[in-house]
């Protein structure tokens, strides 16, 4: 008990010191805030001692004091599915996995957008097969793995192939997974996909940072762990043409996500299930209309 208290105390101390340090640094020289990526990222990654961590195939390690969250502006989303396809290329998702890791629902306007789908939507299923967007009178809601803090999938896994990291990711160890699909049925967001057949990925365009999965294992959104731990944004956030997606370190009060969450009313999907998801939805932006 004592040990945990002390560790927590140190974490707070480091976090506070880091925040002060980074704010000052950012004020002094804004160009140094993210040396690794060309785009402006809002991550404030504090350098700390690298720690031993379970290998997830990406070879990167969590950074002390960071916890990643995503904010999706469902009011701004135009349903263009650019995130879906960019994610597919980035993460070597084969065509056999359909839908890929991200799915976009087209929902009727008269039904308020909340964390719990309406009876109407549940009964018929929202349109995921639309070919034109944005249509007047329609909402678009992207869904993917919520990287829950209280993840049922992690709980039920019989081998520990899926696990929660300190910095907020729910990740998969593709070499441990036995393919029992208990995590698939335990996920209330249906965010997990399964390699029903051996995935065929274009060898030329394969992203070397992301492992190509073997047959018979479960996979899902990783919050682009191979990018985000290096201070880059997830690919879906980077490509969004209307800026509907935001990503960052919630522990840093200066980060964009922290500010959005403080300033804007937001909701999480199926909050009542106590999964404590790490994607928050807001309805702030105005959807592009022709």
């Amino acid at each position: 008990m004592k040990k945990i208290d002390r560790r927590q105390f140190i974490t707070y101390l480091v976090g506070a010191a880091g925040a002060v340090l980074l704010t000052r640094q950012a004020l002094a020289s804004p160009s140094r805030s993210s040396p690794t990526s060309g785009a402006t990222t809002l991550l404030t990654v504090k350098k700390a001692e690298p720690r031993k961590y379970r290998v997830d195939g990406s070879g990167t390690k969590p950074t002390e004091g960071t916890r990643f969250v995503m904010v999706i502006d469902a009011g701004a989303c135009i349903g263009c599915r650019r995130c879906v396809y960019a994610c597919k290329t980035e993460n070597n998702i084969p065509d056999t996995i359909s839908p890929p890791w991200i799915e976009v629902f087209q929902m009727k306007n008269e039904v308020d957008l909340t964390g719990t789908p309406s009876r109407e939507d549940l009964k018929t299923g929202s349109t995921t097969s639309y070919t034109e967007s944005p249509l007047p009178g329609m909402w678009y809601q992207p869904v993917q793995c919520n990287h829950c803090d209280n993840a049922p999938c992690v709980r039920v896994c019989p081998t520990g192939a899926t696990y929660k990291t300190e910095d907020g990711f729910v990740l998969m160890d593709y070499e441990k997974c036995v393919g029992c699909r208990f995590c698939v049925v335990a996920c209330p967001y249906s965010a997990r996909r399964f390699n029903w057949i051996k995935p065929q990925v274009d060898q030329v365009n394969v992203n070397p940072l992301v492992p190509v999965r073997p047959v018979g294992v479960v996979e899902k959104c990783t919050f682009c762990v191979h990018r985000t731990r290096d201070g880059k944004l997830p690919r879906c956030v980077e490509v969004c043409p209307v800026g509907a997606r935001h990503f960052g370190n919630i522990n840093d009060p200066e980060s964009e996500v922290a500010k959005i969450i403080t300033d804007t009313p937001n909701f999480r999907l199926l909050e009542e299930l106590n999964t404590q998801p790490n994607i928050r939805y807001i309805v702030r932006g105005k959807k592009y209309t022709r």
Binding site: R155, T159, G160, K176, C177, V178, G179, C180, V215
Partner: peptide
């Protein structure tokens, strides 16, 4: 039913850490 029955032994290998929740 398993996608990877060749790894079924993993359930025994990781038994001590998983029996708490799975």
């Amino acid at each position: 039913d398993m996608g990877r029955p060749d790894r079924a032994f993993n359930m025994i290998r990781f038994w001590p850490e998983r029996v708490g929740t799975s």
